[in-house]
Nucleic acid binder design. Structure first.
Lengths: 215, 215
DNA sequence: CCTGGATCTTACCCTACGGTAATTTACCGC
DNA sequence: GCGGTAAATTACCGTAGGGTAAGATCCAGG
């Protein structure tokens, strides 16, 4: 009776490729299930590889998460910056341009958004710190647009404006984007462009529902 | 040398009270960290009691979660229904009334919202099923308001309207509410009423930012 | 052929956590 | 006082998951 041959040894996949595969799979798992609920075994299985290899290439779970987050954060930040640099008065309006760029940046890795906005990160740790860093950068950009919006519609005397309104609006805006991305994930057939157009329709509809102007 | 006295034995807290304490603590933990990341030991410690007692009163983790979710779901549903039953043309407009009722229902247990909208529920299991049930009920209500909004602003020929727009709008609306609740949690000093007023201001501001009417 | 390095696995350890059985203490009515 | 029940605990088990050490396999290049 032959002893079962060991499956160990190279499979001919160069390290750089493997690392890309792992990062991709891990990003998807982290985004879907959240940091805590993601098991390295699951990531490894998805790649068709063993847990151990992940550790050899990326170190402990924490570091793998960081390796996923960094490129995602950079990509998203760049997308938002590009949309805002076009100027506040261009068409389509800034919020829609931002969304369009976000969708484009997320195409092919839509779950990546939830790597950045993972609510289950252990509060004290490097992951939370790096995520906070990227979130702060995003919020800073959001604050620019937000202040602009509030100044257009706020009370004539700026001192009457509640200083927290800006923060709340930025937060709400971020949450809205999150919800749209989540919906998008549930409808994989929708392209980034189609999604942006859909948002344009929705915004138009929402505008009439929010204000006092509806008959 | 005296053997350390056992701390076992009743502490004079009747079962019904303990159960309320446990439910309250568990709701908060589940809401904060998510189902997967919540440890029963942490809940027990918060109550000042042992893990075992949780099991004796509520059974396995799953059942404790269900015991938390059911009242939360009922409360939130009732709050939304009450807001929508007042009629679509009353002042303030329906979305703001819904938010106001939600904030009021969540006062004192703001994290409860995230028990219902927990993204880290194991996909196959009773928790996910019950949560899906409540979410579906909420979405059904949202769909009513949503369709109303879209019909007011959509193309004259209703056949041109994208049927998925309604679903996406409901989803976005829900996500917006989620973001507002999250912001509220980070600002504990803010009352439910103040929060509702804040939302009114924000909606007014957003309205001008979304549409093509801004100069 | 054979040696060195790159790739990948097997086998293992340790801890945290969910869960159960058995036991201990306090209170309450008689 | 004295059971009996309600309220808790201690002590324990099993497993899943993060992490490590060591070895196996394959592929160049000489």
């Amino acid at each position: 009776m032959a002893i079962p041959p060991s499956r160990a040894g190279t499979k001919g996949v160069p390290r750089a490729d493997r690392e890309r595969q792992i990062l991709s799979a891990a990003t998807e798992e982290f985004g879907r299930r959240g940091y805590e609920a993601t098991s390295l075994a699951a990531v490894a299985a998805r790649v068709g590889v063993t847990k151990t290899l992940l550790h050899q290439y990326f170190g402990p779970k924490q570091d793998l998460y960081l390796a996923c987050l960094a490129p995602v954060g950079d990509r998203l930040l760049a997308a938002i910056r590009a949309a805002m640099d076009a100027g506040g008065d261009a068409r389509p309006p800034t919020p829609l341009r931002v969304l369009h760029n976000l969708f484009t940046a997320l195409e092919g890795q839509r779950e990546a958004w939830f790597v950045l906005y993972d609510t289950s990160l252990p509060p004290d740790g490097e992951p939370a710190r790096l995520a906070a860093h990227y979130r702060a950068a995003v919020d800073e950009l959001a604050a620019i647009g937000t202040l602009d919006v509030l100044h257009r519609t706020g009370p004539a005397d700026a001192r009457e404006a509640d200083p927290l309104d800006a923060d709340a609006l930025a937060h709400a805006w971020r949450g809205l984007a999150t919800a749209l991305v989540r919906w998008w994930i549930k409808h994989p057939e929708e392209s980034a462009d189609a999604m942006a157009r859909r948002c344009e329709r929705l915004f138009a509809a929402a505008r009439s529902a929010l204000g006092p102007g509806s008959p």
